[in-house]
Amino acid sequence: MKHFVTLASNRIRLTMRNKIFLFFTLLMPLGLFFLFAGIFAKGEPRMVTYLLGPIISLTVMGSFWGLSANLVMYREQGILRRFRLAPVTAADMLASSIAANYILTMPTVIIEMLLARWLFHVTQTGSLLSLAILVSVATISFAALGLIVASVTNSMQETQVICQIVWFALLFFSGATFPLPMLPRVVQHLAVFLPATYLVIGLQKAMLFGAGPWMLRVEITALAGWAILAFFISTQLFRWEPGEKVSSRGKLWAVATILPFLLLGAWESKYGHIQGQAKSAYQSVTAPEAAPGPPAEPAKRPR
């Protein structure tokens, strides 16, 4: 991994020249921010704090989309082959793109936090340390997820289709778009198997209740463990050549990606409290009115 730093800084420079990427990493998350904070939360500070959970989660989760598209493009155009001629390893290529993505995603998260403070008067942001740790492990793990998607697909179209499916699952079954307690029970049962759920709820616990890293150990360990596993799997699945096909061993590895959250989800379904935590976080911002309507609904609330 000698060339990791040079490759990462090169990748950052290339990305900054790409207007489409900037749209997805900066403008779209900020658009979501104003939609959630300004319209759904109607600018109410405590509700904005609550919705910062989904907002930041969406910002961070978007990583996988850009990274998978980029890696597939590099492979299809034969760019990876040129790198392969040089003494560069698969781990160099993958780790550098994860690092570049991390550095490019952080400013957006920081801007969102600052805007929440300046425009929506969110002064209580709970445990910033927990927030930083959660955002970091999540950015890395979702980026690694993108690299896995890129490794199991053979063309750009396939990648886009898989990304759509993954994205919608993460979006609508995790509490990232609608608060989890509002979703149908079936979806709530599904949600415990999705990493995004743990991210959203972890962020809300950190910001609303000031939960420290120790209190969030389940969320942090799960996401960090997943990040490490996903990175390892992506190095195993890595293909330099457009003509190379995914090996059957590779497909098994790809399936192993879902293991950590499958296990955690099973455990949560049995003993867990994550749904209860989601509920209490939600009630803490909707009470005392105790009118658990969707934040998107124009429920009258005193300003």
């Binding site: 040079t6 290339l14 082959r81 040129r82 003494p87 560069v88 457009p242």
Partner: peptide, 24 residues
């Protein structure tokens, strides 16, 4: 030099040479 290869569209000429030089 390979067949069926390319570099990223937005990579500059000197930048490409410098980047690959650092690998050796």
């Amino acid at each position: 030099t390979l067949q069926a290869t390319s570099l990223p569209d937005k990579m500059r000429v000197l930048e490409a040479l410098k980047l690959f030089a650092t690998f050796y």
